[in-house]
């Protein structure tokens, strides 16, 4: 399928320490793939003074140390120097990421003490709790980006019937591994944190590791499927990790 050559992304300064490369303005798998490909390219071919690359849905934010950039390019306008360097680098970035997207199964024990709000989501959707579980575990979710917490994946593809408003007052403590629904989004909390999503279950697996190197189990571009498990399997898997 032939497609017109994509335009080069628009670059915007985000203050004096970052630039945003905007590849599109709507949620779209093709645009997201270009964002991921560009991030991958920049992480493999680091620009002088660049400190961080943050790919999101349709835009990529490049963070830099202005003093390092200025010293490297012998300029007093590091933002402009970085803009030129980034523009040039992006022309060399491929449209598709090299990294093969993986299919990842996340075992989830739904309901009960693991998902205290399952009943709430069922009530809101008019479905039975079983039907909510079935609808949540059915799709292959597309991973657009990571954010919020280390290894927290923003997933696209939630069944419209499961869309449930966030809790009116957020919980002070959401256990690590909790699977929640907040508005039209669903996701897994990799760490214990305060949170306002409706908790429908919990996974026993560790989503983010940093023993030696930081490693996210789910990465942008992956496909995620939730697999319902019982409380006994939850314990077994938890003990194994």
């Amino acid at each position: 399928m032939a497609e017109a050559a994509p335009n080069t992304p628009q670059l915007y300064a985000m203050g004096d320490r970052a630039l945003v490369a905007e590849f599109g303005r709507s949620l779209n798998a093709g645009v997201n793939a270009r964002v991921r490909a560009a991030a991958e390219h920049l992480l493999a071919h680091r620009l002088p003074g660049m400190t961080d690359v943050a790919p999101a849905f349709a835009a990529l934010t490049v963070h830099f140390d202005p003093l390092q950039v200025a010293a490297h390019y012998r300029t007093t306008d590091p933002v402009e120097a970085m803009r030129t360097a980034l523009q040039h680098a992006l022309t060399k970035a491929p449209d598709l990421p090299k990294r093969k997207s993986r299919s990842i199964e996340i075992p989830v024990c739904y309901g009960g003490e693991f998902g205290e709000d399952l009943r709430l989501v069922a009530q809101h959707s008019g479905l039975s709790e079983e039907a909510v579980i079935e609808a949540h575990a059915a799709p292959d979710y597309h991973v657009y980006t990571l954010g919020f917490l280390p290894g927290f994946a923003y997933l696209g593809g939630l069944d419209r019937r499961l869309v449930t408003p966030r809790l009116e007052s957020p919980r002070k403590r959401v256990p690590a591994g909790s699977v929640g629904i907040g508005g039209d989004q669903t996701g897994v909390y990799p760490f214990e944190t305060p949170g306002g999503w409706n908790l429908i279950g919990r996974t026993p697996i560790t989503l983010f590791q940093f023993d030696e190197q930081a490693h996210a189990v789910i990465e942008p571009g992956d496909r995620v499927r939730f697999v319902a498990i019982g409380a006994r399997d939850f314990q077994l898997l938890r003990d194994k990790r």
Partner: peptide, 11 residues
Amino acid sequence: RTGLQHLGVPV
């Protein structure tokens, strides 16, 4: 903690 924002790690 710089260099890991692509994994969602705050600074």
